[in-house]
Nucleic acid binder design. Structure first.
Lengths: 358, 358
DNA sequence: CGGCCGTATGCAATCGAATGCATCGTACTG
DNA sequence: CAGTACGATGCATTCGATTGCATACGGCCG
């Protein structure tokens, strides 16, 4: 328990020069000895000595100095709409799990779906010398991404893509996911299914919409234009508003395929409002598989997307693109899976009468 | 629509020297002109000229070069257990909302509650020259934090604190929150309340536990040691396990105060398992106010904590500490509020018989 | 009219690591 | 044995911005 008597001096972090001095060599030699890529340039014995010295001094290279010289910052930018949307944390986790071991870190910005804010945030990332961007905010028509691409920014789109831009992307297989949902409902006996589509300004919105049409067709279900209602945002409120619109217009249906889970949750609010019993009166399927859906009233059937893998894959692709800038862009679709819970059931037989009446 | 005929050269990002040249001054002068703190050293007219030039060239200072010289990285580290825990995204949002406008960015790491991983992650943050740390993983006995503190690392604890360490912190007022919960249940008529405490290795776990005792006392409720069951983790599984233990031990109670929402959710699983009707048989109160609790079956009554404000406040304090390292540490408690929903109700009259019988 | 002062600016070193080039010594080859 | 080639290491510059110090110039006072 005796006090440490070492002098209290500011713990001068050791620099490469200190290591070199300790090992009795020049800083340049130390640098080469420590860098696996250049290690073969120095005598094995010397290299060992330098490494020993580095270890003894607890030397850690200053990434800032290194960045300045190599113009590689070891950071990538992560552009998401809003971290508090439960969709994104798993994606971020997946990204960080890949980036970390590779020696990279992620700088995260939230755009709040505001184009101006997004522009400013991206500018700030770029000024911080990120080596690439992972973008989760792409919209179908995205001038910002076009500019960045022209400017040569390395990037990968995740979760959503943009039209007319030859950039790598990692997306859920929306068409397959919707097909899973529609088939499930069709097998339960539903024939009139309402699709509360996400914003058609996003690729996921359109892809799921298109997938919905295709599936409705292939299963021979009622194909009524009134059965597709686009929502303005991927939110509960927008979902609720969309459903109210459909109900108020008198559209008849026995099941809902929601553009995503939040839109599906919005339906729950309307059910409560209007005394609709789910799944007795109406079935609902969500999309994404966000957490705690199994605790809902009723537990929400959903199309589960492997978000963490989405993020991990995007990070891997970005690292590839950084390492080999000339590699052609690549797009991968990750398969979703249907997760059946309590919000879907057979339609009430009564409904068949209504169809005759309409 | 004519093509831009400018030569296609790699967009050489303009440097300070370029700006200086354009303005006909030396780089040093340009630097001073652009920096508000040193601007008064240069002729107003010259300064204007430099600023014009900078703007014309779209000059943006290279933060890496600046960091190297000033040894300020403009980044802070954010140490959290797991971003996919819904508790943390709002905190992170709050932090970033404060950091961004101040010109700082956050580097986020996930520790998965693994001490070794945490150590490695923190080391990586430090090697990246973060100027400070916001730590959400503190435990009561935390050697890592003690080391860091001794080493002079600037930091702020958020959500949890650690014992015997004079470091700033921003916490929810756990005692008040628990008091809100207990009072609510007491007013409904509950007399035997089970507390499923979080891990007592965390300050929140103990603070809520202590608060629980105090409140039970002050309301004159049954104070049975069997009515406090600590859970190993802040998770659904641990909560479920804790409740099963209490049930299996034959402990009688009509209400549960869960250490947090996830522990509360774990109770729902056990209710389903054992055919317990909430709130008819047992009431539950959660803690934190995570999203979508209102969609549960039944909607979970909870003590809502202003997490985004927690994060924002922590970020503000960290920036202060960075700016004035000698400022004494400060701790703030943010008041939670009770959010009453469907998981709490009057106890069944039958219960009163049981009390007589016990 | 000379010295001094303050203002405005330039010069050069610095932060720490990476790297092209020069240098030195040794060993091998013809 | 001379010449060369190569392995190992040192030297010096570079990345871009910041900053202490030196310098130049103009005006003012004694």
């Amino acid at each position: 328990m005796q006090l440490d008597s070492s002098t209290i001096e500011p713990v001068h972090t050791p620099t490469l020069k200190d290591v070199a001095q300790a090992a009795g060599v020049h800083a340049a030699t130390a640098s080469r000895a420590l860098n696996p890529a250049t290690r073969k340039l120095v005598n094995a014995e010397t290299a060992r000595r330098v490494q020993k010295a580095a270890e003894a001094l607890h030397y850690a290279p200053n990434p800032i100095a290194r960045s300045l010289k190599t113009s590689k910052s070891g950071t990538v930018g992560l552009v998401i709409p809003d971290l508090t949307n439960p969709l994104f944390p798993p994606i971020v986790r997946g990204i960080e799990d890949v980036l970390g071991p590779a020696g990279y870190s992620a700088l995260i910005v939230n755009t709040d779906n505001d184009a101006a804010r997004e522009r400013a945030q991206v500018a700030s990332l770029l000024s911080r010398q990120v080596e690439g961007l992972i973008v989760a905010t792409a919209v179908v028509e995205d001038p910002l991404l076009q500019e960045l691409h022209r400017g040569g920014t390395t990037m990968v789109l995740v979760n959503r893509r943009t039209d007319d831009l030859d950039v790598s992307s990692v997306l859920p297989d929306d068409a397959t996911g919707i097909e899973l949902a529609v088939r499930h409902l069709s097998e339960l006996g539903h024939r009139r299914i309402l699709h509360l589509a996400g914003p058609l300004t996003t690729s996921t919105g359109t892809a799921r919409s298109v997938g919905f049409h295709a599936s409705v067709h292939s299963h021979g279900l009622d194909d009524d234009p009134a059965l597709v209602v686009p929502c303005d945002h991927w939110t509960e409120d927008a979902g609720a508003a969309g459903l109210r619109r459909a109900l108020d217009a008198g559209t008849k249906f026995t099941a809902i395929v929601a553009g995503n889970d939040l839109i599906g949750l919005g339906c729950y609010d309307v059910f409560a409002e209007r005394g609709i019993d789910c799944p007795r009166d109406v079935s609902v399927v969500g999309f994404n598989g966000m957490p705690f859906l199994d605790k809902l009233r009723p537990p929400l059937t959903t199309v589960a997307v492997p978000h963490q893998r989405l993020g991990a894959e995007a990070a891997r692709m970005l690292l590839e693109a950084i390492a080999e800038p000339d590699r052609p862009p690549r797009s991968v679709l990750l398969p979703p899976s249907l997760c059946v819970r309590g919000s879907t059931a057979r339609p009430r037989p009564i409904r068949t009468r209504k169809r005759a009446a309409s």
